[in-house]
Structures are given as structure tokens and as C-alpha cells.
Amino acid sequence: MWFAWDGELIRMTHTKARQKFRNLAAEPRVALSIADPDDPYRFLEVRGRLDGVVDDDADASFYRSLQERYGNVYPITDADVRVIIAFRPEKYVAVTAGKVQRTAG
């Protein structure tokens, strides 16, 4: 999933109509893995808890900003059910050049 990081929270977009949204309502733990497309031995895994869910605006402006950031802009046909999911990272595992870094705990 596309995401935005503001230094405190990771934000993603989704719709209220999908199973993943219902799963988050029942279980607020989140895990996100990010792989480096140029180096299969470099990745980041982030784990945290759901911090909040808010409706995107009528134009799905947050979703549009992600489309523009990732260079894949297309019509948003589900703007009326788009939400912004925010989670706060609590732990991470990072692997670079075969070296593992992780948070304690």
C-alpha cells in the first residue's frame, strides 16, 4: 500500500467497504514491510498500533496526494468511502548489507 510518513505517524488510505478495514476495527495491530526494489537484501519491517481512522474529504485529497507522489494518477471512483488510516510505529526491523537492526522488546 502507498503511505506517507510525517515523522510520527504512518498514514495510508483504504475504503470502508473492504475486509482489511473490518480487520483493523477488530484488531488494531499493524505491520508494514518495505522492500528495496534495487536490493533484495535490504528491507524495513515496521509494527505498531492503529492510531486513528478519519474520512478522507469528498475529493479524496489524501489519496490523490499519494497518487501524485507515486506517479500513478487516475480517477478516484470510491472517494465517498475513502478513509485515512494512521498508525504509530512501535518496533522495527531493518536489514541493510546483511546487518540487522531492531528495536528492543
Results as ranks from 00 to 15, higher is better:
70 Y>S: 06
66 L>W: 11
17 A>R: 15
12 M>E: 06
17 A>Q: 13
47 R>V: 07
18 R>M: 08
3 F>N: 07
62 F>N: 03
31 A>E: 06
74 Y>K: 11
94 A>Q: 01
43 F>N: 06
86 A>P: 10
29 R>Y: 14
82 R>Q: 04
50 L>W: 08
64 R>F: 00
100 V>R: 02
3 F>T: 05
4 A>W: 04
66 L>S: 09
102 R>D: 10
72 N>Y: 10
96 T>S: 00
47 R>D: 00
4 A>Y: 13
72 N>H: 07
40 P>N: 04
68 E>N: 03
7 G>L: 08
97 A>S: 05
58 A>C: 02
104 A>L: 15
96 T>W: 10
7 G>P: 07
63 Y>Q: 14
1 M>L: 14
85 I>G: 01
58 A>R: 03
8 E>N: 13
72 N>D: 15
83 V>K: 13
33 S>Y: 09
45 E>A: 10
73 V>C: 03
37 P>M: 01
80 D>P: 13
95 V>D: 02
54 V>Y: 02
90 E>S: 01
58 A>D: 03
34 I>R: 06
35 A>L: 13
66 L>T: 09
1 M>W: 11
55 D>S: 04
82 R>S: 06
63 Y>E: 06
91 K>P: 10
29 R>V: 12
7 G>Q: 11
88 R>H: 02
56 D>P: 10
26 A>V: 14
70 Y>G: 06
38 D>T: 03
96 T>P: 00
81 V>G: 13
85 I>W: 06
49 R>A: 15
48 G>L: 11
58 A>L: 05
95 V>A: 01
28 P>R: 09
22 R>G: 08
28 P>Y: 14
38 D>C: 05
19 Q>T: 15
88 R>Q: 07
91 K>W: 11
84 I>C: 10
105 G>V: 07
35 A>F: 12
36 D>G: 05
14 H>E: 05
90 E>R: 03
59 D>A: 12
40 P>I: 09
103 T>V: 13
45 E>V: 10
4 A>T: 04
76 I>Q: 02
48 G>H: 05
39 D>P: 11
14 H>M: 11
71 G>A: 00
24 L>E: 15
89 P>I: 07
4 A>H: 11
34 I>T: 11
76 I>W: 09
98 G>I: 11
81 V>K: 15
26 A>P: 07
52 G>V: 04
62 F>D: 07
75 P>M: 01
28 P>S: 15
50 L>K: 00
60 A>I: 01
69 R>K: 14
68 E>G: 00
100 V>N: 05
42 R>V: 01
24 L>S: 11
43 F>S: 10
86 A>E: 12
62 F>L: 07
80 D>A: 10
41 Y>H: 08
39 D>R: 04
30 V>M: 14
14 H>P: 05
85 I>Y: 09
70 Y>V: 09
53 V>R: 08
56 D>R: 02
40 P>V: 12
73 V>Y: 12
48 G>Y: 04
9 L>A: 14
83 V>I: 13
93 V>I: 10
53 V>N: 12
63 Y>G: 02
87 F>C: 01
46 V>P: 04
97 A>E: 09
64 R>M: 08
7 G>T: 07
49 R>F: 14
6 D>F: 09
29 R>G: 13
17 A>K: 15
39 D>L: 05
103 T>W: 07
45 E>S: 03
60 A>T: 02
96 T>R: 14
102 R>F: 15
